[in-house]
């Protein structure tokens, strides 16, 4: 009975805690949270993620976007290893490779074309002794889709025109001069501009001092959707920082200040009591 009476006042507290917990679950951001990192959830894509990697597949476009933490520090080797593990095939040497400095580190940009059908566009960066690998792999025989990021040269510009020209000259059969400007697109990842022709399309978005590009040849109607999904993953990927030590430090400091205040109350009370006893003993001695 006594236990019951003790628990009754605790009931509202427990209910409130339950409500907070439930509310917190509802507030979960559209991210897939793995132990090592977080990546945006791609709506409309088949979620093939596990505890170790985030992976989304679009069956219609025959495209897969994958984010993984690989136990190899060197980005190029890590990318090759992850592609081999995920897709069960050798991607060989990259046909394109460069580096870009983003806010979270230096990323290596790689493009592989192992056969005439599949292509893999990869961004990889070192993360201590491991490497983060974000890959876009498509195997649609009717399309060739490539993704890459190029640092803007000179002053930052609002459009990716120069980088689109450069990417087309390096990776596509049609050059920018053969294509016409496409209507600007506002997608969740940003504002995209580009050029389009009969069988080639290239689009780009500027974020910071870098241009994020997508090049499509063949059937390119899926290019905006794929470019948006891949670049949302690239820009939205992040690692939750491990700073529990700072929390422990802050809590210790807070408790120490409160404890000092409360202990000073006890200490002063005790001193008052001692003073009082001394006065009384002096008074009695005097009497």
């Amino acid at each position: 009975m006594r236990l019951f009476l003790t628990l009754v006042p605790l009931l509202p507290i427990l209910i409130y805690a339950g409500v907070v917990l439930a509310q917190d679950d509802q507030d979960t951001m559209p991210y897939i949270q793995l132990s090592a990192f977080n990546a945006p959830l791609l709506e409309g894509w088949e979620n093939q993620s596990s505890d170790d990697f985030a992976q989304f597949h679009d069956a219609e476009a025959r495209a897969t976007i994958r984010t993984a933490l690989v136990e190899i520090g060197e980005p190029v080797a890590a990318a090759a290893s992850d592609l081999r593990r995920a897709f069960g095939m050798e991607f060989g040497e990259p046909i394109y490779q460069n580096k870009v400095n983003l806010a979270d580190g230096t990323w290596t940009v790689l493009i592989y074309e192992p056969d005439g059908v599949a292509s893999a566009s990869v961004m990889a960066r070192r993360a201590r002794s491991q490497a983060v690998v974000i890959s876009f792999v498509e195997s649609d025989p009717a399309a060739r889709i490539l993704m890459l990021t190029i640092a803007q040269s000179g002053d930052a510009r609002e459009d990716a025109g120069s980088e689109i020209d450069l990417a087309l000259s390096l990776l596509a059969s049609n050059k920018a001069a053969d294509l016409v400007e496409m209507t600007a697109l506002s997608l969740p990842s940003g504002e995209w501009t580009g050029v389009v022709g009969d069988s080639t399309a290239a689009m780009g978005m500027v974020f910071g001092n870098d241009s994020y590009l997508a090049i499509g040849e063949g059937e390119t109607e899926n290019l905006p959707t794929l470019a948006d999904a891949y670049n949302r993953t690239v820009l939205g990927f992040f690692v939750t920082p491990d700073n529990a030590g700072y929390l422990a430090l802050a809590l210790t400091a807070s408790f120490a200040i409160l404890a000092l205040l409360i202990l000073s109350f006890f200490w002063r009370s005790r001193n008052i009591q001692k003073d009082l006893e001394l006065i009384e003993s002096l008074n009695q001695a005097g009497g």
């Binding site: 805690a17 917190d24 951001m29 977080n38 992040f238 700073n243």
Partner: peptide, 13 residues
């Protein structure tokens, strides 16, 4: 410290 979820961007701090 226990019931509220961890901020995935800032971490435990």
């Amino acid at each position: 410290l226990i019931v509220a979820g961890t901020d995935i961007q800032q971490g435990e701090i």
